[in-house]
């Protein structure tokens, strides 16, 4: 890869625009093919520039000489454009190693964020960015992109653009802490951001978001934060998304796990710690309680568990009606 500090094609796109970039690239590729390839493979090239030149790369059939970074990006575009013949051809050119693929996706995402290209180009471009984000998160388990994906979701929403695939990709992390990235937007004071944050977190949207004061925004955030940190170890992702329902609830709170103080896997809800025979006996009693009492018991249990483990052990071994009485008295 060329290590020079600037790239001719990047400069063209930024200074002269997409049309001029394409005209000059076509001229260059026709007369100096190797030079055109060198510019495309340059380490300073950004994804929007490659994206704009994809039809011309096809015209000059440059694929065999492009680096995997570029061919990975073109392959994703080919699949989004339903050009499966090209996608298949590129598959044979690409090395089958995870790191090359991850680095290419990261390059697409990092250098393509917030590009506001010509309208006839930008939709498939955004689709490619969504795919890069989702593959980084779901396939490569690269959680470093989550803050940027979260910012991009809110930015796109402000522009009235599609966010659903990006939201879906974000939740593929199965990372409960990612919810706090969204929750921060409850505190921004921007009505559109607050409304979206409420939708994504599945909390009631205030009646009049516009009339909301900064103080109220802070309260909304603090309430969510408090709920989240109390319940974080006992949350699992439900898999609900906007394709299925207008009000997806991304998280399910496992009150049984909370009652026993046992962490669960956020992806499948399975316990991450062993449950002893004594705890199983407690759980049998817990299941006989009403739904309302179960909520009271689990809330009190979590607080007592954190405050005084010895006292909690005594409390949870007492009979269930005594547990409920203590919990109601002390909550």
């Amino acid at each position: 890869m060329n290590q020079n500090n600037s790239n001719y094609l990047e400069n063209l796109r930024i200074r002269q625009g997409a049309d001029s970039l394409r005209r000059k690239f076509i001229d260059l590729a026709a007369r100096h093919r190797q030079k055109a390839i060198r510019y495309l493979n340059h380490d300073k090239l950004r994804f929007p520039t490659l994206y704009l030149l994809m039809p011309d790369i096809q015209t000059f059939n440059l694929y065999d000489e492009l680096i995997p970074r570029n061919n990975t990006a073109i392959q994703i575009w080919a699949k989004k454009s339903r050009d499966f013949a090209l996608a298949f051809r590129l598959e044979r050119l690409l090395p089958q190693d995870n790191e090359t693929n991850r680095a290419a996706l990261k390059w697409m995402f990092d250098t393509g964020l917030y590009w506001d290209g010509p309208s006839n180009f930008s939709e498939n471009f955004n689709a490619a960015i969504d795919t890069a984000a989702a593959m980084l998160i779901a396939t490569h388990k690269d959680m470093t992109v989550l803050p940027a994906v979260c910012e991009l979701i809110f930015w796109r929403h402000r522009q009235g653009l599609l966010i659903h695939d990006l939201v879906w990709g974000f939740f593929q992390s199965y990372e409960p802490d990612s919810m706090m990235m969204i929750a921060k937007y409850l505190n921004t004071g921007d009505a559109k951001d607050v409304e979206l944050a409420c939708r994504l977190l599945h909390i009631d949207i205030p009646d009049s978001v516009d009339a909301f004061t900064a103080h109220n925004h802070k309260n909304l955030f603090e309430q969510y934060k408090s709920w989240f940190y109390e319940n974080n170890p006992y949350l699992r992702f439900t898999g609900e998304h906007f394709l299925q329902t207008s009000e997806p609830n991304p998280l399910y709170l496992d009150n049984e796990a909370k009652y026993l103080g046992k962490r669960i896997s956020p992806k499948d809800g399975l316990p991450l710690e062993n449950v002893t025979p004594d705890e199983t006996a407690c759980l049998i009693q817990f299941r006989k309680a009403s739904e309302n009492d179960q909520e009271i018991l689990s809330s009190y249990s979590a607080r007592l568990h954190n405050r005084d483990f010895r006292l909690w052990k005594e409390w949870i071994m007492s009979n269930i009606s005594e547990q409920v009485s203590t919990a109601i008295a002390e909550l």
Partner: peptide, 14 residues
């Protein structure tokens, strides 16, 4: 619902 959908084709998540 298709919980293990390929992230390249989120349109088939369900």
């Amino acid at each position: 619902r298709n919980p293990d959908v390929n992230p390249e084709t989120p349109e088939w998540q369900g």
